[in-house]
């Protein structure tokens, strides 16, 4: 049972890691770099609340 669990852990890790890599690639190719790195320190909460994607 424990050995099976160990294999399941490897499986989950690989699947989730691949999913994150896929999503990362998708986001980086879909959106512009300026938009992705547009967060600024000290913006008031009202501004970020209003903004909707």
């Amino acid at each position: 049972m424990w050995v099976a669990l160990s294999y399941a852990c490897w499986g989950i890790s690989i699947v989730l890691a691949l999913w994150m890599l896929y999503d990362w690639f998708k986001i980086d190719t879909t959106y512009s770099e300026e938009m992705l790195t547009s967060s600024r320190e000290g913006e008031l909460e009202a501004v970020s609340e209003k903004h909707r994607i």
Partner: peptide
């Protein structure tokens, strides 16, 4: 006033 002017499309962390 906010220290940084906000314009255009911005993404920030969510409150």
């Amino acid at each position: 006033e906010p220290a940084v002017q906000v314009q255009g499309d911005r993404v920030s962390l969510l409150r």
